[in-house]
Nucleic acid binder design. Sequence first.
RNA 1: GUGGGUGUAGUUCAGUUGGUAGAGCCCCUGAUUGUGGUUCAGGUGGUCGCCGGUUCAAGCCCGGUCACCCACCCCA
Length: 431
Amino acid sequence: MSLSTKPLSGMRQRLPCEFRIEKYVTETLRLCSVQAGFEEYDGPVIEPLALFAAKSGGELAGRQSYCFTDRGGREVILRPEMTPSLARMVAAQGELQLPVRWFSMPLCYRYERPQRGRVREFLQFNLDVLGSESLAAELEVILVLQGIMKSFDAPSSIYRIGWSSRRFMADALARCGVEQSLAGAVFSAVDKRDKMKPDAWAELLLQACGGDSGAAEKVIALVSVEALSDQWLTDLMSGSSAFQEVVEFDELLRGVGVPGAIFSPGVVRGLDYYTGIVFELMDTGGENRRSLCGGGRYDNLAGLFGNKKISGVGFGLGVLTLTLFLETYGLISDTVKEAAAAEVYIAVASFEAVTGAGILAEFLRDKGIRVMTDVSGKKLGKQFSEASRYGIPFVVTVGSGEVKAGVYKMKNLSDGTVFTGSPEEITDRLK
RNA sequence: GUGGGUGUAGUUCAGUUGGUAGAGCCCCUGAUUGUGGUUCAGGUGGUCGCCGGUUCAAGCCCGGUCACCCACCCCA
């Protein structure tokens, strides 16, 4: 029986032509982070199960995880996300000067059924500010997110950064008459609003409110609010400090100018550890309905590791979902997709010339030129085809005659012209 | 875990009421034995996902199974 030619379901392997695109995306993300003064970190792929059981969403550590018992009898998990590891790293650094701005590009694992934009092994870009309670941290993080979209030339018309606040919503729900014990269910119902038909959603919400139709109607009104200046809303929330914070944050966003950011009370996010401002980045078109990015403030994440209370704000961004988004809007240029593997191809006329070709290749490489030499041993015509297929613009032909004379012909494949000269002259020509 | 769809050449896909397995692209050879893209001529390549059933005869019908895709759940 022969082995399968496919990798395990949901595990990613990338051919060079695919990897090139991923690298372009990840390098752009890194550049944007570094530009805002963020530093890259990394953590272990395998973590103790308990690290996730405590704080992530319920399903994350349970049904949707790769977990097993290692040879030492420890319950371990292939990390489904990065934030708990980050919290531990920070908690362990007694001397760390806060705040810190860190980012990471970890491979994460979730055991769920693969679908579009969703696989079992995925890169999740993470960016966080830790140790600042100021709304300036939320602003900074959202500005980086906006900067990322700008770097990819994504116009603000094709995406939306919806934001809200957990604290505000908790307060607002109470004021709508939702019982405290039902708040979790109502949150989860609110989160589903965009995915359901209005009637069905209203029914679900009513259930979540424990059948209290008065409360349900108010929640519907709350979630439908589009402006913070809405009279009904300001009346409802008068005297609320959480609402005051939301208004303040809105002023910050307007002050700097973040056209993609829109206050959306319906945004609550699924992860349990978010406490304050939460936000997500959505594609406004129809093709990528999931959020590309989700984030927010968490106040007590490091609490797991002791008394130290560290507040943070950050987001996770799926590299694959982002890439799909960029591709559907044609934002990955042909120069990224078709980047040439080298600047010059050295065609070898006969095996006797291999040495000469190698010497020439080394000479050019020492000058910083990317050189591919033929290893196929096929006839020259085929070698030219090969160079052309790789998108390499120049071909230098090396045979025993050229080696003896020290003079080579270099053909420009785009216009067919031929340049003849010494290695130095060829170098100058290529520079 | 739930629901829907699709499995035919390396790839994208046709394949009529059941009657000899097809096309484009790719690849290989030649026209051109030291010069690519275009063109022309020719060629390689399939256990029709797998197992069973019906039939004189199955890519096609039936049952099962596996894989992949899409959606749900959850989330990036």
